[in-house]
Structure formats: C-alpha cells, structure tokens
Design a binder for these strands. Sequence first.
DNA 1: GGCCTAAGCGGACACCTGTCCGCTGACGTC
DNA 2: GACGTCAGCGGACAGGTGTCCGCTTAGGCC
Lengths: 196, 196
Amino acid sequence: MQQKKDAPLRSDAQRNRERILEVALAELTRSADAPLSSIAKKAGVGQGTFYRNFPNRESLVLEVYRYEVQQVSDTAAQLLETRAPDQALREWMDRLAQYAMAKAGLADAMRKATSACGTLAGLGHGPVTSAVALLLKANEEAGTIRPGVTPDDFVLAIAGLWQIDPHGDWHSRAGRLLDLVMDGLRAGAPARHDTP
Amino acid sequence: MQQKKDAPLRSDAQRNRERILEVALAELTRSADAPLSSIAKKAGVGQGTFYRNFPNRESLVLEVYRYEVQQVSDTAAQLLETRAPDQALREWMDRLAQYAMAKAGLADAMRKATSACGTLAGLGHGPVTSAVALLLKANEEAGTIRPGVTPDDFVLAIAGLWQIDPHGDWHSRAGRLLDLVMDGLRAGAPARHDTP
DNA sequence: GGCCTAAGCGGACACCTGTCCGCTGACGTC
DNA sequence: GACGTCAGCGGACAGGTGTCCGCTTAGGCC
C-alpha cells in the first residue's frame, strides 16, 4: 500500500537510503549528536544525497527510531484493553518517557518536531498523535478526564519530558511531571475518580 | 553592590559590552535568529570579544531581556499582595507567557536555559526561580496547591510554553496549557479551594 | 545491445557557531 | 609623563549544517 510512495524510488536510491539509516542507527547510538556529515560519509553518499533523504536531523532521528515509535504508539491500544482508561494513559506516558530517555536524541527530535509546525503536525500527524487521540477519547468517554482535551493540548502539557536530562534521575523528575499532568487532566472530569 | 563584579571590568570592555547589548536588542527585535557574528560585526567588536561576553545565544538573549525578565519576576510579589495566592500564581503564568511570546527568541532562550544544566540552574538560579519559589511557597502555605512542588517541577510543567508558536493563536493554546497545569497543581491541595 | 533522459548523485560552497592565541592598549606605579 | 604588565581584543580557524548544480547512471525503449 505505502509502496505507492516507495516504488518510484530508483533501486540505487533505495539502497542508499537504507545504508544511511543503517549507519545512522549505529552512529546515533554511539553519540546522539554525531555529525550528519560524518554519517553521510560513512554511508558512502554525498551531502546532497543525504540531505535529500533527510532534510534535517529530526527527520533522520524520527525515521531511525520509527520502529520504536510505532511500538510505543501501538502500546496505547494494548494498554486500553487490560487497564482502566486513566491507568492506561498514565502508564503509556511512562513508556513514552522511558523510550525518550533510552533512545539518545529521540527526545530532542520529538521536541523539535513538536514545535515545528506550530503544533504537533511535525510528527507527520503520525502514530503518536493517533495513540494520544485514542487514549484521550477512551478517557473522555469513561469520564476519567476533563472533556475537550486535544492531542495538541496533551503534547504541550508533557513537553517538559523532552527537556529532562536522560542522565541524572530522570525517572523521578519525569514521574513527578507526569503525575502532575495526569492530575490536571483529571480535574473537571465528570466521573468521580474514587475507582474502587 | 553588584559593582563588586562589574568594577574589575576595564572601561573599554564595559563600553564594548554595552554596545553589543545595544546592537543585539535592535537586531534580535528585527529577527529573532539574527547571526551572532553579524551582531558582533555591527557592534564593531571581534568574535572573541563577543563570545567572551556572551558564551552563546541564550546568554545574550537572557541578558538583552534581563530587564524584562526582572520585571516579570518582580510582578510575582506584587500579585501576591493583591490577589489570592492561587490567582496570583495563575495570573503570573499568564504574564510570563505574554512576555515569552512578545520578545522574539526569549522563549527559545528560556527553553535552552531550562534544559541546560539538567535543571533550571541555567537561569542562573535567577529572578525567575525566586519568583516561582515565592509563588509556590505562598500557595503551599495557603493550602491552595499540593504540597511539595519544587520550582523545578513547575518549570518542567510549563515547558510547553516555550514550544508555542508566537504567531498563530498562542493565547488560546497557552491558556489551555496553563489552566491544565494550574488544575494539576491544585489537585491534592489540603484546603478546599472554595475561598470566599 | 545502444541510446535517451531524467532521477539521483556527490562534492564544492555558503553561512553559522564557538575556540584559540598572538597582539594591543588601559591603567596603576613611580 | 614614561613604563610595564596583563586584561582584553579581534580575526583566523575548526567544525557543523544545509544548499546548489554540473555530472552520472539506472532503467525504459527501440
């Protein structure tokens, strides 16, 4: 299906793109701010080729970690199946934080992508947005959060995540932040949240 | 008093610094991402001089807008005199947002400063931190917010502010974010918030 | 198999940030 | 007012991002 967009790629172009991603994964894992030019060189392509495939660092990082991002996004639906909506949401945020901290440079890319087009359109209106929308909808319907919260609101609210230093005690800092956000979302919820 | 730190500056150095700030205000107002090198050139100083005074973009921006930042910070105390603590806090956030949006590049500098040293130490542990601490303390004592919130927590919570595009309808987006944060802070407050 | 053509290549280049270091001139001393 | 010294100067430079454009070559066509 998405072949429609990939098919027109010439075979050598395809190979180049994959080689870049391969090298990028290795280099970015080694150092989150590895020079793009060196990635291009190690992949054996020119600057031009590189930048035609990935106009900037975020787009590269986002693509490199696309699989991971997809996974996190998919988690949303799974959590909703086994948890109360609000617990699912809270837990999903934790996973998101975990990934952001684990994958060097991902948080940064997320941040830039968030502020990119003024809103989270930067994420290509991608899987993350869908996941957030899903979770918010489930919670709104269950009456566990205030009505009317948009994915955009949500992404802004957790923006602090992308600023947390992955070294240091990110876990505690992120936890406090997410608890606070969660409480904010709960405020004004129609349903009493004294779930037994 | 603070002469202690300024006095050792040689007269010509002092003049240079001021000329840089002067030019920077003009250039940054014109375009938030004016090249630092061009600011240096227009101020008639070398790169070295420039960077010795301001090691990076944020430090320049923060200094250029220091007066404004100081003003916002001072507002905290004033608001506390005439408003209930929680209203003072909420209103202060609004002012902060307003300044961040009005002064091109300030938000960016704030963001970088925030994530700089892992925590908000980047702000030089400056007036903003003090203002936040003051507001939080007043609210905690009044029982209008949950106890134990640190300035660091707060700054992380409002991090979304620095991502909002100053064009577009920042006012609405910021308002929604800050309302949410405020509700989050209120959650778990010891006092009923039906202040008469 | 040779040819055509445009998709794709890749390196030179423009521009920016931040560093380094030999030189200069401000200011205390006499 | 001459002088020595070191704080401060400033421009060259290293390194990174992103752009541009003449050349190459994959792949359809005859």
